[in-house]
Amino acid sequence: MLRQLKLTLFAATLLATGALPASADPANTVAFVPQLIGIPYFNAMEEGGKKAAADLGVEFIYSGPVDTNPVDQLQIVQNLIDQGVGAVSVSVLDASTIAPVVEQAKAKGVKLFTSDSDAPDSGRAVYVAQATDQGLGYAIIDEMVERVGEEATVAIVSGEATASNLNAWIGFMQERAKDKYPKLTLLEPQYAGGAADRAAQIATDLMAANPDLKGIIGVASTTCPGVGQAIETAGKIGSVIGTGYCSPNTARSYLKSGSFGYSVLWDPAKLGYLTVWAGKQLIDGKPFEASVQLPGFDSPTTYDPATGILLLGEPAVFTADNVDQFDF
């Protein structure tokens, strides 16, 4: 019996070691820990990170949790720090995911910073931002009002209720609606977790509950397919406009069918590139300049020393007309 078990474990170990070699030089390695693996958004960041690693001559590790559980994410970060990786970037689920290890990282000389989702005041070295939370929240509301007018009812379907970056965007959507479009009715946000079918179910129920609904915003990229599909299935194309923060590839078929009016996103591959570049800068001990033009980037990235934010740029708006120009 013991032999059977040994064989099982041995086979597993073999399989596993065949999958990936251990990294060569930990100190010259930049790691990125996403909120969740297995979603196209973070995969695109991984691709960008790999490209940057090749360009800059560093090793790159991409490792994230299977569930959006803060302890699972913390465990990954902790192990990267124990390995003595040169720089670790985290798209935090919540500030608590790095709080317990900030001091350890400093003691070991590991540069710990955030990317994609921030933990302000945590002592992180820098935050690599796709766009400001404010810019993202405002942009999606502005684009929506442009399409449905100011006197409209719009619903919000988010992913995990516990994701701090999604909640921040929702907060700025509500702020924009209140300040600039007093006649716009934003329904209370609903949460679908990470499941596309739950998102579709909630979107369908929301359309039934609010016959005058004009738009649905899918906040997490995992909710976009559900929202688009629900509008198609309910036969509400044209009368309800779907949108969300999702990549052209995810939104393409919905943009073309008309269930999505537009989609707001940045290029996650560029964000991944910028993340690894920032990690390299930190490892080399080079300061960030106020404005830097990276190869292959349309516009220069800016750095604000007061907030410690390295900004990718403005988010892009994708529509049926321009979506085919992008592949990510």
Binding site: L36, I37, G38, I39, V66, G193, G194, A195, A196, D197, R198, A200, T222, P225, G226, Q229, T233, S253
Partner: peptide, 16 residues
């Protein structure tokens, strides 16, 4: 029916 309805498969399918 899932495919017929959602035409999409993500990592979290069927979790609940």
């Amino acid at each position: 029916f899932y495919i017929a309805t959602y035409r999409n498969v993500s990592m979290t399918i069927g979790a609940t």
